[in-house]
Design a protein around this nucleic acid. Structure first.
Length: 503
RNA sequence: GGCGCUUUCGUCUAUCGGCUAGGACACAUGCCUCUCACGCAUGGAAGACGGGUUCGAUUCCCGUAGGCGCUACCA
């Protein structure tokens, strides 16, 4: 087969926030496209008008902007294969549905949803297929004139795909190899609804992928059972030679328990399942997002990329460029991956450690101002530098660990560290230190060190802990010299005097 | 129920017939140390089960069991 330009697509339904599993699917598509110098299309699959949710499309777009996943064409990006919203492609689908009808590869069915429900109750395991379609009200069983009369009379109908039973259909999946299923277990899928003049997913999907020249369909495993149907559709249209290659990705599972990852799991266990915070316009519910929870987009990308794929080496910290270079669909795992959000937090920590302090300032400043603290970016960057290696996964976790930088501590013997380290003689020792430091004009780490070194012969005899009590009020914080330098001479001495007096 | 996919430490995974089964997260211990940390070191922890094939199976094949998905005029 001739080499084809790699073109992939991500085609969500605008029915709400973008699920994190969808993000991973989009990411894999993106990595694959970039690696092969191909293109990625953003298509909106809004063929179910009942489920449309306003704002969802913009939300999805904004999510990808934040994550750094770029599309080459599609809704809001333009391109030569538009329109990219399925609801705007009615005439296109109609044409192909008519073609199938004319060629006898599909038929018209008048059975109402209620009638179908009834049949399903009457007949166990009822399926609309070769065995049952002769019992139903459709263009195969009704006289031509009656069919025409019903249509002319405005009776609503659907178009169903006529499936030939008894043939083995093969799907060549990049991840799973040859998957074979017999067409007899497939039902005559509804391809088109007269009610809204729109196709269903299956038809729209095949027509669009063909017209948009999609070379590879990379999607979730939940589509594997309908892949044979899609193969049959390509065949019915005579497009089998340009049919895309399929790759069905393993699903993301609950961190605990059974089943696939859902929004509820996030609420229950305290982690986001959406990239951005989502305000449901119908229910008014607010769901947390990775962005608002303090994740760096690079960390989210890295974490998701490794859920179901790995480069086969011990390297786990991978930038987008690393991922593009190393990604390999054939190395994707076949089984579902439990969503290990604790490891996701670890990735965030790693990326915080690797990020310039200056870049972390805005987020830090936000948390501080919520606590009534306003400082210059330079001083905030300095605090981040002294504190970010503490046990934190998120910048906002820094606040309770570093409040003393900005607020004079309350001194109390109720504090365990104070009780342990503020012994007899501590006050006198601190008095001496105050006197020593008072003489300094330059309060830098080096200059403090110079005088304190003279005061005590050896480093380990210095009254570190009482001094920490003075400046921090408890057993936490950075190196004492650095802290004192940050606070400045005036504040440092003030805190020491306050502690001496209070304790 | 039917159909399909799947099955290595608690979790994510490496292994493409030779294994003392490797790494990471989490957990525990120790070292370092002016506190909390970081860092470093160490430790426990896995091949669902039963048959084959083979000199040799975690690796290949077949069953069984478990897990997951699909089974809509939703995607």
């Amino acid at each position: 087969m001739a080499e084809r330009k790699v073109r992939v697509r991500f085609a969500p339904s605008p029915t709400g926030a973008l699920h994190i599993g969808g993000v991973r699917t989009a990411l894999y598509n993106y990595l694959f496209a970039r690696q092969h110098g191909g293109e990625m299309v953003f298509r909106i699959e809004d063929t179910d008008s009942n489920r449309f949710v306003p704002g969802a499309e913009e939300y999805i777009l904004e999510s990808f902007r934040w994550l750094g996943i770029h599309f080459d064409e599609g809704v809001s990006f333009g391109g030569d294969h538009g329109p990219y919203r399925q609801s705007e492609r009615r005439e296109i689908y109609k044409k192909y549905v008519d073609q199938l009808l004319e060629e006898g590869k599909a038929y018209i069915a008048f059975d109402t949803p209620e009638e179908l429900d009834k049949k399903r109750e009457e007949i166990p395991n009822f399926q609309y297929d070769a065995k049952t379609r002769h019992l139903m009200r459709n263009s195969l069983t009704l006289p031509k004139e009656e069919v025409q009369a019903l249509i002319d009379g405005g009776t609503q109908y659907v178009v169903r795909f006529l499936i030939e039973p008894g043939q083995d259909v093969h799907v060549d999946d990049i991840i799973r190899g040859d998957v074979k299923i017999n067409s007899s277990i497939l039902d005559d899928k509804v391809l088109y609804k007269s009610a809204d003049c729109l196709p269903t997913y299956h038809l729209a999907n095949i027509v669009d992928d063909h017209l948009m020249e999609i070379s590879h369909v990379i999607r979730g495993e939940e589509w594997l059972p309908s892949a044979p149907l899609h193969v049959l559709l390509y065949r019915a249209f005579g497009w089998e030679d340009t049919m895309p290659r399929f790759a069905h990705l393993p699903l993301l599972l609950k961190p605990d328990g059974k089943g696939k990852l859902s929004k509820r799991d996030g609420d229950r266990l305290g982690f986001p399942v959406f990239p951005l915070e989502w305000h449901d316009p119908k229910t008014g519910d607010v769901s947390s997002g990775y962005r608002e929870s303090g994740y760096l987009p690079e960390a989210v990308i890295n974490f998701l990329a490794l859920l179901g794929w790995n480069p086969g080496t011990d390297q786990e910290i991978l930038s987008m460029d690393d991922l593009i270079a190393q990604f390999d669909l054939t190395k994707c795992s076949k089984s579902g991956a439990r969503f290990d959000y604790v490891k996701g937090q670890w990735f965030n920590r790693e990326y915080i450690l690797a990020t310039d302090n200056e870049k972390l300032v805005p987020e830090f400043a936000k948390i501080l101002s919520e606590n009534g603290i306003n400082e210059t970016p330079e001083r905030l960057a300095a605090v981040i530098g002294m504190m970010k290696m503490k046990k934190i996964n998120f910048i906002h976790e820094l606040w309770p660990l570093c409040d003393f930088f900005f607020i004079r501590p309350e001194y109390s013997m109720d504090d365990k560290f104070t009780r342990k380290n503020w012994k007899e003689g501590a006050a006198a020792e601190m008095q001496e230190l105050v006197a020593l430091l008072e003489g300094l004009d330059d309060f830098s780490v080096e200059s403090q060190k110079a005088v304190v070194d003279v005061w005590t012969e050896t480093g380990d005899k210095r009254p570190w802990n009482p001094w920490r009590v003075c400046l921090v009020g408890t057993g936490k914080g950075p190196d004492m010299y650095e802290l004192a330098a940050f606070l400045g001479k005036e504040e440092t001495l003030a805190r020491m005097r306050a502690a001496i007096e209070k304790l």
